[in-house]
Amino acid sequence: MFGDIFNAQFVASSIRVAIPLALAGLGGVFSEKSGVINIGLEGMMLTGAFTAVAVTNFAQNPWVGVLAAILVGIFLGLIHAITCITFKANQIVSGVAINLFASGITVFFSWLLFGETQIMAKTNLPIWGLSVPNIGEGSAFARSMITIFAHHSPLVYLTIIIFALSHIILFKTPFGLRLRSVGEYPQAADTMGVNIVKMRYMAVITSGALAGLAGSFLSLEQAHFFVKEMSGGRGFIALAAMIFGKWTPLGTAGAALLFGFGEALAIRLQGVTAVPVQFINMVPYLLAIFVLVSAIGRATPPAADGVPYEKEIG
């Protein structure tokens, strides 16, 4: 039974499940590194998931759907930025409002445009990479390697590129240094001539774009449909991944893979064990709580995380 569960397909599906968590978590990294908490990732993801399927079906082209999901994420990110940065409102409240808004607007348009709350995606993105050889052709090792590394949706490769780039941008460029300084000690950054408002806007909008992309992967690639509330807390699990990953892109990716592993395991265990499916469904959420508790004392958020910047003070 062990071998039936932990095989190459399992690893590949762990990666697929981890992608939306990783992308949204990376969105959290950008936003919080600049000092803005983004609880709205969940809603941005949900709206992205809906938009991706809806636009794909109208345009008959999944790429247009993915692009639209990113744009919608940017739009919601902009709303969050205006509320939190320009109006300096409570960031958690603004994020919660975005989540409420997303729950309503996705079902609203889903009724309006399609007359139902579950929409099938008419086309999907292609699979890129090498084709998996049939059993008997080639070695089992090659088959496993191709399944794990080279037989995925283009968005999987895109995610890997995005993570590599994000790591470089955040830690190896002047821009990244400024972004981090804005989240750690904005007063100092301000005296150095860094435009705090501009940096934070860019970071929050980036986080929206990433959450939108995460949503498109969830609906177009993982489920092949949209259904109301399909994000199912993943935006928050992504935040847990971000915390566990110590607010770094690579750490977040690792934590997302851990969650992906947990969720993929939960999916695999359904029907195999005598444990009721409802308890298996709890696994990702229990894992998130466990991870958060164990991250205590090890993970420190950026110093100015969640604090609006007031020029007069200091």
Binding site: I79, T83, V93, S94, V96, A97, I98, L100, F101, S103, G104, I105, V107, F108, W111
Partner: peptide, 12 residues
């Protein structure tokens, strides 16, 4: 669901 949207807009 228009009402849900209205509620969120009210909050913002």
């Amino acid at each position: 669901e228009l009402i849900m949207v209205l509620q969120a807009v009210i909050v913002i």
